[in-house]
């Protein structure tokens, strides 16, 4: 096969045009995102069924979570989505060589792409830091999944910690669904089972996203992207937005149950 006529450097040998390559990459990414939707869907199905079955547990459980931290994290993640979108925009604008100064778009070009990616990375990190505090608190108190519920730091001593008892009282008092002031719903353990799986898998997605953003940032630093070719930035941003989308649902469903 003659390679002689083949197009720009970034064009892989099996594609005919950059446009074909771009559209294939985008289609692949969107199909992958659909896959992610179905992946998380199982958790949401379990969530709704158990919420219906065990409303007390779900209500009390959500009051054991710190909704302020959840709100903070939501804001942080929305900001990161914004910066990710801006990074794509900066990459799409490119270096604007030959464009008269007055027509130049702001926040465009390689440098801004880098800045925005870095910001996205920082916000993602901030999200994980907040999650870290939430998790360690739960480990410490013993709001843990399944058979470990009530076992501070996964050590089952047979008694709940004072802190947990206190938290439980407060949560029960503020939950609309409760059976009595000192009745702890047994199925809290299922709630925290789902809580940890949901936020844990989401957290893993955030970590993967951070890795991808770092990778793209480095590519951008090396000047691999231009107005003509920036598909990886685009696709990583898409992935990142999906992570955000999942959180948009997780937040009210886990933290804000009446």
């Amino acid at each position: 096969m003659a390679h002689a006529h083949h197009g720009p450097d970034y064009l892989a040998h099996h594609f005919d045009t950059p446009k074909q390559q771009y559209e294939a990459a985008k289609i692949g990414m969107w199909i992958f995102l659909a896959q992610e939707v179905l992946f998380f869907s199982g958790l949401f199905v379990a969530y709704f069924i158990f919420r219906k079955w065990y409303p007390e547990a779900w209500s009390v459980g959500s009051h054991l979570l710190n909704w302020k931290m959840g709100t903070l994290n939501t804001a942080v993640l929305l900001l990161s989505s914004f910066t990710a979108a801006m990074a794509v925009r900066a990459a799409q604008i490119g270096d604007q060589k030959g464009v008269p100064d007055k027509d130049k778009r702001k926040f465009g070009g390689q440098a801004w792409t880098g800045h925005f990616l870095l910001l996205t990375f920082v916000f993602a990190g901030a999200f994980m830091v907040v999650k870290y505090f939430e998790y360690t608190h739960k480990f410490h108190v013993g709001t843990l999944p399944g058979q470990y519920f009530g076992c501070a730091n996964f050590e089952c001593t047979g008694t709940m910690s004072e802190e947990l008892v206190e938290e439980l009282r407060a949560a029960i008092a503020s939950a609309h669904h409760n059976a009595g002031p000192d009745l702890v719903p047994y199925h809290l353990r299922s709630f925290f089972g789902l809580y940890f799986v949901m936020t844990g898998l989401h957290g893993i997605h955030v970590l993967i996203g951070m890795g991808l953003i770092a990778w793209i940032w480095n590519k951008n630093r090396k000047g691999e992207f231009s107005a003509e070719y920036n598909t990886p930035v685009d696709n990583v941003a898409l992935y990142w937005h999906l992570v955000d989308l999942v959180w948009i649902y997780l937040f009210p469903l886990l933290y804000l149950i009446d």
């Binding site: 896959q35 992610e36 179905l38 992946f39 998380f40 869907s41 199982g42 958790l43 379990a46 158990f50 999944p145 399944g146 058979q147 470990y148 199925h187 353990r189 299922s190 925290f192 089972g193 789902l194 940890f196 799986v197 898998l201």
Partner: peptide, 22 residues
Amino acid sequence: ATPVLAITLVLLFMEHTLSIGI
């Protein structure tokens, strides 16, 4: 469909190791 199997297996795995009560 396959991602649903994946999440099922994740839940099974967690159920097996942590007994999450699902």
